[in-house]
Write a protein that binds this DNA or RNA. Structure first.
Lengths: 342, 342
DNA sequence: AATATAAATGCAATCGATTGCGCATTTGCA
DNA sequence: TGCAAATGCGCAATCGATTGCATTTATATT
């Protein structure tokens, strides 16, 4: 009983005693078919409840009208924002979006990417898994000349389009802001340094210190994978220093929050005694109290840009790999505002 | 230069001077092909960098190995959790997942659903748009016998699988909890009542009052679409009553938060003077202070269940529409805990 | 009216993989 | 050794839509 009889253009053709070619052309508004015939055909198509079989069309046209998106975890605010933005643009342009999550596992990522290739996606948008360290599975796309866009976590090994936020400027701005607010010893909870995003943030931090003539003290920088727990561990470690910091630039909002809660429980007042700034503008950073200053990453826009870029490449077949750096925005909230204003 | 020469089974066949049928069978591990031949074929396939063209296979098999998911907004914690759960299960079972968001617009939803049908998804998982009030576009799936699973926002008009959380029990439990904590006049910010989820929550609230012998006062129930602003408006209205409430059961966490902030700013202490409970367990509800008591909705699990259900139906062709009610969990946090414990 | 030209439609191959049926070769057993 | 059964593989049709080229039909021109 299943799918036995989806009407096809041949059914329409038979009904009207014409050829399937004509039906196909009519439904595609080909000028070679007379208006009268087109109308007849469309009427029959409607009455039969005809729905074009995109699979067949895709096979013939060697085009799937589908864009693949691969992220580490769908269920993460930043990534779902990117997906949302990309879907938005893609849908308007007539593309479907297939999504998979790597769970930050290289093995799964490889499977996913191969599957997407087999499904002949017209382009692939990907933020690679943390774990991923070989890139053969992605080079296929390059080799076959299928548009490939990296975002967020990018790698230098493959020359293709990349969309990133200006992490360096973000790190710089955060640090400068803390300096401006009068904090004297500014620590940094950095992320794993093999990921460009984190090393850039750290470099921005260092540069801001340098520009302000502040000595860069390595003991104030702690590198971790920035989980909530590691945030606490790091702060504990920092506060035990002979000369502890009075502010922290945290590599993400999660550690900013856990650090803040820890410090508060220790009786340290924020922002009066201690300044904290996070990164990413997670939804919660706005609503906790004190609210957390942070850097907004335009996830939705990144998704839009990525989709626009990839669709242009799909349709023009032009390839000139570019790296788009989206601006970051410093959002000043309570956790770092001790000088009047705000 | 594009896609001109993806190797096919015919290329492999030619290389080995055998037929494409044999190649196809070999690659699918058909027992009719000898081991020796299979090995030769697989070797050549590898050396040619052959990747099966899923489109062709799908067309021939009349099966896309794809599940469609439609949500109002991808970029919302609950929905992205569902998607994440569904992708998880689907991927393991060898299915792709295409996703679209309706933005709560009926028109877009209709387009999406039709497009998914044209793409011959093997099944559709959907949470309908608020705005949607006709269901013809969904009935197609029923008529064609393509598995259809509703979740979260379901409609009685179509007899198909539904996955919901026990909103009634949730509303009941929240209210009972507030009563247990000694709050006397409990208000309710309800969502639009044409959505089952909201009317069920309200009914649970009413039932809990009844069971405890508390008079149900309609002036304590305010219906809105539960935006942040409407939360504030509602609370203002409630507090102006001659006999204002001392607790609110909010239809979602967003209004719980905005109400809480408003009340706090009015100098009302939470939870001592006033109790608040939300619904949905948005990530922020745990980290704001005071943290917000709420009802956890197992989004990830819903997605998993939905995918499991739909895959079973796809593969067995059995259809016996069922409604799965997932349990809700009351998470007691600070905003409603005035009696010791916690 | 006859021919030239334009307009409308049809034929058949194609996209790449799958599969029922049949032929050929090998193996098994008496 | 002889014949049946088993094994291994190929032919050709199929899935549904598209399209270059051919053919038919209608319109225009002289």
């Amino acid at each position: 009983m299943n799918k036995q009889s989806e009407p096809t253009i041949h059914d329409i053709a038979r009904e009207l005693k014409i050829s399937a070619s004509t039906v196909s052309r009519a439904l595609n508004d080909n000028p070679r078919i007379s208006l009268k015939t087109k109308e007849k055909i469309k009427a029959v198509a409607d009455s039969l409840g005809y729905r074009p079989n995109t699979l067949a069309s895709n096979l013939r046209n060697k085009k799937s009208n589908t864009i693949g998106i691969v992220v580490p975890l769908i269920n993460r605010h930043f990534f779902s924002s990117v997906i949302s933005g990309a879907e938005d643009v893609a849908f308007k342009a007539g593309y479907n979006v297939v999504i998979s999550q790597s769970n930050d596992l290289a093995a799964k990522e490889i499977k996913i990417v191969q599957s997407m290739f087999s499904n002949r996606v017209d382009g692939l948008i990907i933020s690679i898994a943390m774990q991923t360290s070989t890139f053969e599975h992605l080079k296929i796309f390059k080799k076959k000349n299928i548009p490939l866009v990296f975002f967020d976590r990018v790698i230098p090994e493959i020359e293709t389009d990349k969309i990133v936020v200006d992490d360096f400027a973000g790190g710089f701005r955060v640090t400068q802001h803390l300096i401006d607010q009068g904090y004297k010893r500014i620590a940094h909870l950095a992320g794993l340094q093999d990921l460009t995003i984190y090393s850039n943030r750290k470099n921005g931090y260092i540069e801001a210190l340098r520009k302000n003539g502040i000595h860069y003290d390595e003991s104030l920088v702690i590198i971790s994978s920035l989980t909530s727990e590691e945030g606490v561990t790091a702060v504990k470690q920092l506060m035990k220093l002979p000369n502890p910091p009075d502010a922290i630039f945290c590599g993400n909002d999660t550690t900013a929050l856990s650090a803040m809660i820890y410090l508060r429980d220790m009786g340290i007042r924020i922002p009066q005694d201690f300044g904290i700034v996070g990164f990413s503008n997670e939804p919660f950073s706005k609503v906790v109290s004190p609210s957390i200053s942070t850097i907004a990453q335009p996830g939705f826009q990144m998704g839009q840009k990525a989709a626009e870029l990839i669709i242009r490449e799909i349709e023009t077949k032009e390839r000139n790999p570019q790296t788009i750096v989206l601006p970051t925005e410093l959002i000043i909230r309570e956790s770092s505002s001790r000088k009047g204003s705000q």
